[in-house]
Amino acid sequence: MTTDLLDIRRIYVEPEAAALPRGKEVLARFPDAQRVEVESHLRIPELYGDEANVARWVRIKREALVLGVKKSLTARPNGRSADFIAPSTANGCAMACAYCYVPRRKGYSNPVTVFANIDRIAGYVQRHVGRQGVKPAPNECDPVAWVYDIGENSDCSLDARISDNVRDLVETFRWLPTAKASFATKHVNRDLLSWDPQGRTRIRFSLMPQRDAKLLDIRTSPIAERIAAIDDFVAAGYEVHVNFSPVVVRDGWLADWAELLDQLDAGVDAATKDQLAAEVIFLTHNEKLHEVNLGWHPKAEEVLWRPDLQQLKRSQSGQWNVRYRTGDKGRHVAALTDLIAARTPYLRVRYAF
């Protein structure tokens, strides 16, 4: 299978994953790919932690695939975008957004890893939903349903080009009346339009001004294409929100966001506007990711790494993150949410930070 994003030539595979039905399906999709047996999808020295891979950042994403088994199944409480983070069916990505946090965990490369034990993952999710019962009160995630993010560490629209894992989860949630799936995406995959989610899956199309996307959203679907797809996904039975993330502060940023909001307003119909909501997330960047980016895309760091605008904060994992300075950030958030209210008054902001 060859697309603009994927030309899989080498598959690193755990023997246990290769023996499972989903693993066999994935291997069959790429019959010409070299297979490299690995003990663990987490320990592949030639992919992870090798500084020389910075020079091959995009090539590895395009040509390498990892097939493994998800060992630990947990649903972590979240509370902002979703009530829970579901156990992932994949991680990594063939796209190369300069601000993505996944490389911080994986080292110098993060091609897609597909987990073959989808039956165990879907079964765990069903049991977890059953234990929650009926949602007792509305919250910012959803007024009625428990929301499960199924794509925290990958882009589900792209994952669906590699395996049927995402489709299996969308179909699982179709029959769970107290819960819904959710994922953010920067990739338009119209194959999803035939899946009949019956309102039980929320897709959040990530949007930013085209000027930012051209520099930062590498190998993603164009912003205009994402907006043009929204009505079709609503008509196909998805709940569709927009994810304004990350918001990057630079010269002219607010004027460019005004232009994007006008583009969104003109690009969606009344049925979409009636159900549309947004989440707004300002940039948080990371010192180690900054160092990685300097090796393959230094131009992006001119807007992502701004010591004149940002302050350091140590993360729970001990790494140094940067975010816009306290006080200044509050004014930036207010300016953008005021702009949203003025340009797209129907667009409910679920949260902004």
Rank of each mutant, 00 (worst) to 15 (best):
Y99I: 05
M95G: 09
L215I: 04
K299Y: 02
S317G: 08
G92K: 09
R343C: 10
H187Y: 15
K214G: 08
D83S: 14
L336R: 09
G68I: 08
A184Q: 06
P77S: 02
V249Q: 00
L67H: 02
K106L: 15
H128K: 09
C156F: 00
V36N: 00
F233L: 06
D328H: 10
K70D: 04
G151A: 12
A137C: 11
D4P: 03
D164F: 00
Q126F: 02
G79S: 07
A19W: 02
E25K: 10
R250S: 07
G327S: 06
T326S: 10
R59S: 13
V102R: 11
E46H: 12
Y48I: 12
I218M: 03
T74W: 05
P222A: 10
P209C: 05
V292I: 15
S154V: 13
D308M: 02
C141S: 10
R190H: 13
E279D: 13
S245Y: 11
R120G: 06
V26I: 03
T2Q: 13
A277E: 12
I150R: 02
Y48W: 12
L73Y: 00
V36T: 06
D308L: 06
D251E: 15
S109F: 07
N243F: 14
R43P: 00
S194F: 13
W257C: 08
T74M: 11
R10L: 03
A278D: 01
V66K: 05
A64V: 14
H128V: 03
V114H: 06
R323S: 00
E14C: 12
Q126G: 14
N117T: 04
M1H: 09
F115P: 09
D217L: 01
V234T: 00
V280E: 02
P45I: 09
K24N: 01
N165M: 09
W305M: 02
N243L: 11
P31M: 04
L312P: 04
R131H: 07
M208V: 14
A75G: 01
N78V: 09
